[in-house]
Design a protein around this nucleic acid. Structure first.
Lengths: 153, 153
DNA sequence: ATGAGTGCAAAGGCTTTGCATTAGG
DNA sequence: CCTAATGCAAAGCCTTTGCACTCAT
């Protein structure tokens, strides 16, 4: 499992793993997809489409959307929602590690953070019990801090 | 603070409190708004617009949207996002109490649950520290269980 | 009477899709 | 060659807005 920090580490292992997952689905690791992965690797949190378009200037919106959908379908990226209605994308947790998000309720931006291991484990076991008590099959949990980022306050 | 259970308790205090908040904003507690509040009170979790329209059959979509916006602006309801891109509405936590959500990743439905008080407090203090350590002003937190509801599995 | 509330329809804005063209294996 | 991938434009879909009408104070 990759270690998580403020920006993500792009290493050959990850590169190879991504290529493998695409290949398994008969998909290619094209320049456009590399650019998208690179953008997400460089980010310190999930990116909105608008953010991505700023970084991948030449790429048409439809290509961004379609390639992110492909990358999501092969488990390379995850699509998640912030407080606003725009979808955001990040590298899958199985590539960059489990983490949580700071959500700015003003601008909707998300950035990553971690909680202590012991609290994470305590949370996991408690939530597992609560899920089954509610007839729910737990897949994972989501813990966000909602507030104002330094830029917005 | 109201006690939270599977469905919410509609009592006169809450009724009066809602009326008060509307009045303060020069807004009226109209039949349409009462119907919306009633729908949310009866629900066991946040409702999507589609859900609300099923319950408030005669109400035009625009009235649903507009009245929910008003109710949100006076702090009676909260708008939040599930895993899908459709906004969901629930009564504000200051009316029904702090709680968390089970999110079905298949149908997007949300239902409420609670965690033990001591864990909640532990979480609160840890997140407060982490927020400030990240230059963030913590407003509140969000903890969801993501998985499959009994209907979808 | 005066401003809030309502209803219908049209407009917005993000996202998806169709289709013809290009390119990689 | 053959299928995936791309690009542009058009269509979709939830949500918001404009505007005239109604209603409560």
């Amino acid at each position: 499992m990759a270690q998580h920090s403020h920006t993500h580490v792009i290493d050959e292992d990850m590169e190879a793993e991504i290529a493998l997952r695409l290949r398994k689905a008969d998909q290619r690791f094209t320049p456009a997809r590399r650019a998208l992965v690179a953008a997400l690797v460089a980010a310190k949190g999930p990116m909105a489409i608008a953010d991505i378009l700023l970084v991948t200037e030449k790429m048409p919106q439809s290509s961004v959307y379609r390639n992110l959908t492909v990358l999501e379908s092969v488990g390379v990226v995850s699509r998640l929602m912030s407080n606003d209605e725009y979808g955001r994308f990040e590298l899958s947790e199985n590539l960059i590690g489990h983490h949580h998000h700071l959500i700015c309720q003003q601008c909707g931006a998300m950035s990553d953070f971690n909680i202590p291991h012991d609290m994470e484990q305590q949370l996991d076991s408690t939530l597992a019990q609560l899920a089954s008590a509610n007839g729910f099959t737990l897949e994972h949990h989501r813990l966000d801090i909602v507030g104002k980022c330094s830029a917005c306050k």
